[in-house]
Write a protein that binds this DNA or RNA. Sequence first.
DNA 1: GGCTAATGCAA
DNA 2: TATTGCATTAGCC
Length: 722
Amino acid sequence: MSDTTLLIDGNKLIRDAFYAIPDFTDADGNHIGGIYGAFYKIKELLSGADGQTFKITFDSETGSFSKDVLWQIGKVKELIEKGAVIKAGEETDITDDVKSFVENTLLSFSPSGEVKETPKFKHSLVVTSDLNEVEDIFKRASESERVSYYFAIDKKDGAFLSKKALGLSVCFDETTAYYIPVVNFITADYLGKKLSELSKVSSLVTFDIKESFCFYIPFEIENRENGYEDDDKLSSSPRCFDVLIGAYLNNPLKNDYEIHDISKEYLGIPLQKKSDVFGKTALSEVDENILSDYMGKAAFICYASSPLILKKLSKSGMEKLFYNIEMPLSYILFAMEKEGIIAKKDALKEYGDKLGVRIAELEKTIYEAAGCEFNINSPKQLGEILFEKLGLPAEKKTKSGYSTAADVLEKLAPDHKVVADVLEYRGLAKLKSTYADGLAAFIESDGRIHTSFNQTITATGRISSTEPNLQNIPMRTELGRLIRKVFVPKDSCVFADADYSQIELRILAHMSEDQGLISAYHEGDDIHRITASKVFHVPFEEVTPLQRRNAKAVNFGIVYGMSNYGLSQDLSISVSEAKEYMAKYFDTYPGVRTYQDRVIQEAKNKGYSETLFGRRRPIPELKAGNFMMRQFGERVAMNAPIQGTAADIMKIAMINVFFALKKKSLKSRLILQIHDELVIETYQDEEDLVKDILVKEMERAADLSVPLEVDCHTGSDWYEAK
DNA sequence: GGCTAATGCAA
DNA sequence: TATTGCATTAGCC
């Protein structure tokens, strides 16, 4: 019997159909090409299999299927169930009933009425590694105003130093994409040189340009010496264009933009996700045809989408933000990643071992107090031990059980030694796993850590840092802060560390135009003390430490759009006291309240908030039905312009500093950015010049109604320099 | 192995 | 019931 049974793998059938035929969407915009294609294929199969039985199954691996495909698989299952003449997973006779069910289902998806065909790739692909042909491709490309390219890059374990180019795709009109594998005479070096030349005469477009800077430097960067300029005079000359950065500025809320997202959003063309095409295979192991096909499509997408992305940027007034800040910054971030920072492996190990000893002691003590061994790192187990076995007073807080968060345990610690021990254990375990052991794993063959600075992640415009995150190295506790001693400059160098003094509050002063706040910044540098003096009506000299601390908390809270409750938690006071502080604050600085009301109203009207430099953050929460969501939206509306403007200013400062170093032909290099702080690995004989550049360029990055102030220190490690 | 929740580090 | 992030561990599927 089995040799006459027609076996159909439903999952594969639908996925293949999804990518094989022109896609259709229904009235709701759902992709249904896979459903249509699958039924079409079934119809074909059945018509040639009279007298046999058939069996359709849906049990093959679906883990790597895209959401669109999975959704369609679900729909097909639903349709089959509804039809009731085919049972999935069971042998079925090919009857007229079955045939007409398939036929009718197919007809219901016919591309008429509410069903419309979506756009598709039109280009043809040319693959060549022939030197003459490649030369010809670049020659013809150089006659085009706009040329897109995309590198196939292999990276071992994400290590920065292991990056290798496998090939390059190029596209300069909508008819053809080229893929040039790296073989023989076509080296990564050669391709880089061709791109460098090309960048003099054509605007180069790609996706995630930071990844390609290790193969070439665009002419506009190579040739540049001046810092940030607030103009658009360069619009007629060739400029690089990163579709990823453009798409991010247009929608900074989207999590990870990938090429298929750009394709879908701007061209309407569905493309398989990179991970669906290549899985976990290293790119160097991938089938050449599959690779070149994907690469060609990537170049085509960059070429075709860039004008649309630019148009949207212009419409939103973000063209200058894009060309004058984000694009040059991208190169600077690359240069910082490439430079990296030395981390002393032995010192890290020693530090970790020391922690390990104390951790083991604490473990023992805690097990004794608990009367049994358990996993202290598991909040579930810890909660059960503390609040059930030992019967401590519990605040049931989390979805899954007791909260064992630090603020809960801190209240119990004075009365219960075991809780104090748990807190100490937690602190040390954190330092060991995340920092001592965690950082050591990222030290590469040059003894340095090369973090990734991500430019297209945050909703507000900040940079983020990953693998490892060098923007959250401990600072507040002495033990944690000691980690910074393992970060050291190379021979003949020191670190210069410069940070803005309260940049966000100064931006608030500027944007709110509150005269009290503005004059406070002209009066002196201890803004918290000044605020305390004004809020509590006491002479500046008589402000108590408590008053200053409270004023500081309010100053910080205001930037986040804080509530009475939030302040009360932060200061461990009652909500009514917190309310009083807030009221006094707003009496002192009435412009701040007016400003907050204004930005909330504007965000409600426009649907987004905006920085001084035109960066937008959409706030859909403001239209939510849920009160809490709307409240959140209001806090975001108050915070985003401030945090975002601070990010803009820092980016401008980085461009100023980078090109000032270059103009003066200094050897010192920017290596870290921590939101309001820059670190330069500084040659000793350049120390004074570098400090001067840092302070001057950061302070002149924006012209506000209050001065921007920068503190700068040097030291022989990061601990000392900060 | 992929995903989420809880936790805690930074500005 | 404070803004923006990222990494780790457990624990579940």
